[in-house]
Write a protein that binds this DNA or RNA. Structure first.
Lengths: 323, 323
DNA sequence: TTGTATGCGTTATCAA
DNA sequence: TTGATAACGCATACAA
């Protein structure tokens, strides 16, 4: 009766259902899926459960999982390769239908090899691995990935600043060791190069993705280089750190310094001034990644979703003189 | 070898491990936990994956799940009782070790009965149910719950405003149909009563928990009652809506109107002015709920965690005249 | 220390 | 339509 595959007399079915509800019986999903009837779970692995992007993406992925009758497992790797590997093992043991690895990854051949290993391991238990928000390793066509246009987004933002007359444009949050950081940075360099501008290494500053780290990093930069009139921030979190640093130094936005962020986090439109930022389609990203992970669609090519520059009050035309 | 219970010769164990890694074999966790060896998952059910509180709480719960070797399933109910019931059934089928129901619940006897039913249903398959961020139904001692002091938090915030000389204090986000809304509101009424102030019904305004709804609600209130000098907001999201409404009307904060929120969401300290708000220990909440759900601790009584008023720039002494 | 049998709650198959 | 039985991959107990 519960399997639903076999034809049963109506009266018998009702008798079974009645006893079941009387006894509080429910099918043992573990035994059921052990018979290969179908997986019951899929997984989403993120470095940390932070940021708006994470919630939006997870919610979208869960929605498609639910539609397919699956539960969504949410795991964190804390950016630790060992923990990541152990999660993959556990998910294999659990016979998850698919796993989505989301977020920036280490930008190294060794990391790429790990990913391919994970993919093969999952495949061995009949599950899919899909990358989300990061490029496929070695640009391999045989690893499913859905990403958004980090490079294009920052390129558009940087060009926006160039169009406003800025020339001393800093990049805050540089870290070539990670894919996301590297590709966003390359959007910055491309925009500058297209205008024939040199990359001023001093204006490219490393900062961890926290408000505090960003604040300190920009503070230090402005000590050395008070001529900066605009800063491209890796993320909105970093942009908020930039706001704090500028405010602490008595500089006005956007009159003295223009700021652009990335993510369009909640509330950044309510800052003073409202943050100009880049919006990525996180919900769509989660949907596609989940659909890929469950084999509902097949990746025609590597999907790269577009981003959108949202111009608000934190960017303005450069002023010829400062102070 | 994999069960680890039996003593095996070292050479044999190595031979097994070698073959396993060669074949890519991993234990079938489904079959294993079917033997009652131990559950492998626990679940966290929220209405929506929004808000900072959610991420912080989920991360903390996942940390203790991980420590116990379990995976965390994250499910959304969208506030729909039918979906909630269906999730409970699925989790019973999956033999989850425990489930945490988090967030505001409907404030009705019928809802309480549902919860007790869920608890019994989970118990039947040897799993625990724990409520988080909402009170136990009917104040039943036999339903595990860990909550924080909604009432006390808002009471402290309201008294803070009273101490600053405010008398026309509005409450934004009223909705007696839900536990969280009701208990936060009662903190407001208690603070007023303690000072011998009447509750002015016109100053108590309904608003859904979105920035847009709050903005419109406060706008409408100020049309009718321009004498309001302070507003207690159900959440930070609503407080941001209040900021917008005030700004749109050309009112200054805190000179013309003081605002307090609830949650201490990211970035609210970076608004202009920085938001005075109430911080609840979401991480601790998640930790305790998870520990309870896994039976690591037993609830001595119903845990009510304390909150903390964080005074920032959005509240100030009332001015005798406006404009 | 190792091999063998039994049972767990399903699905699937085949006979009645 | 229904009942009996094998098989799934494991844990457990017991014998070798």
């Amino acid at each position: 009766v519960f399997a639903g595959k076999v034809v049963v007399r109506e009266e018998a079915r009702e008798r079974v259902l009645a006893s079941a509800s009387e006894l509080g019986y429910v099918v043992n999903g573990l035994a059921r899926s052990m018979m290969g009837v179908g997986r019951q779970t899929m997984a989403l692995v993120v470095a940390e459960m932070v940021g708006p992007s994470f919630a939006e993406l997870a919610a979208a992925a869960e929605a498609v999982a639910t539609r397919e009758g699956l539960l969504l497992m949410l795991l964190t790797s804390h950016g630790d390769p060992a923990r990541e590997a152990s999660l993959i093992t556990t998910l294999r043991e659990q016979r998850a239908a698919g796993v989505i690895l989301v977020g920036s990854a280490r930008n190294a051949a060794e990391a790429d090899e790990r990913i391919v290993g994970y993919r093969d391991a999952m495949e061995q238990v009949g599950a899919r691995l899909v990358l989300c928000g990061r490029p496929a390793p070695f640009e391999r066509e045989d690893v499913d990935a859905v990403d958004y246009d980090h490079e294009g987004g920052v390129h558009e933002a940087t060009r926006h600043l160039l169009d406003l007359g800025h020339t001393k444009i800093a990049f805050l949050g540089y870290d070539p060791g990670f894919t996301m950081q590297a590709s966003r940075f390359s959007g910055y360099t491309r925009a500058l190069s297209e205008r024939g501008a040199e990359i001023d290494d001093e204006l490219v500053v490393v900062a961890a993705n926290t408000t505090e780290a960003a604040q300190k990093a920009l503070h230090d930069l402005l000590e050395r280089r008070p001529d900066v009139t605009a800063v491209v921030c890796l993320t909105d979190v970093i942009a908020v750190g930039a706001y704090r640093a500028l405010r602490a130094r008595g500089l006005r936005m956007p009159e003295d310094v223009s700021i652009v962020g990335f993510d369009d986090a909640p509330f950044v439109a309510d800052l003073t001034p409202p943050l100009t930022t880049i919006r990525a389609p996180f919900a769509e990203l989660g949907r596609r990644a989940a659909a890929l992970a469950l084999g509902l669609v097949t990746a025609s090519e590597h999907d790269i979703l577009g981003t959108e520059l949202i111009v608000r009050g934190s960017t303005a035309r450069v002023r010829s003189t400062r102070r």
